[in-house]
């Protein structure tokens, strides 16, 4: 049945377009039309700074850490606020908090490692290869990202993942929010209500 439906739908689509002038693809978006990233010209040379502005504006938190040692000591302090953790596969040992492990649906904190980030939209790019549940179920989500992986535009960030796409590439660009109850903004509805981007290096 589905096979016949396929042929009929594609047949109707081709018939509909038969006498229509095909429209050419306009190519890449002209640079002048690109939605600007924060900080203007400064943002071009400092995508990490621009990323921080954008993610903070959406209600996210950002911490910049010079190197792995600084990251470690920040993490030790940060982890004292939580009782349990669920860590995604692929987070380096040195960046895992010393906390009792719990399943993602019970953990107080989820930790993952982004495959990229975009300043233009304040987005962290997360791969399903590290597991999705720890990215989604705990109420607080800590995401490690390397400073050199922060791109200026979302297009560049997506392009860098193009050759080896996981089952799901997800963008997290702020805490979970909703205004569906009387148009009043609430955070932490289904996904994490706190997202912290910890940027290492740079």
């Amino acid at each position: 049945m589905s096979g016949d439906a396929r042929e009929r739908i594609l047949g109707r689509v081709r018939e509909a377009n038969r006498d229509r002038e095909p429209v050419a693809h306009p190519g890449s978006l002209p640079e002048a039309a690109e939605p600007p990233a924060p900080l203007g010209e400064t943002g071009r040379t400092d995508p990490v700074g621009a990323f921080e502005v954008r993610l903070r504006a959406a209600g996210g938190e950002v911490v910049q850490l010079a190197n792995e040692a600084a990251a470690r000591s920040w993490l030790d302090e940060f982890a004292t606020g939580f009782e349990t953790v669920s860590v995604c596969a692929g987070v380096p040992d040195a960046l895992q908090p010393v906390l009792p492990a719990a399943p993602p649906e019970e953990a107080a904190l989820g930790v993952s490692a982004a495959v990229g980030a975009a300043a233009q939209t304040g987005s962290l790019l997360l791969s399903s290869r590290e597991g999705r549940r720890s990215q989604l179920l705990p109420p607080v989500h800590l995401v490690w990202v390397r400073a050199e992986d922060v791109r200026l535009t979302l297009g560049d960030a997506l392009q860098s993942c193009r050759e080896d796409l996981p089952a799901v590439l997800a963008l997290h660009s702020g805490p979970s929010k909703s205004a569906d109850i009387g148009q009043i903004l609430i955070t932490g509805v289904h996904g994490p209500g706190r997202i912290i981007a910890a940027i290492v290096g740079g």
């Binding site: 987005s123 999705r132 979302l154 996981p166 997290h172 660009s173």
Partner: peptide, 17 residues
């Protein structure tokens, strides 16, 4: 600038992937 979450799905996950 973009939604808080965007899913870009290429295929099934789990052991299949």
């Amino acid at each position: 600038p973009v939604g808080c979450f965007v899913s870009i799905i290429q295929g099934p996950g789990g052991s299949a992937a």
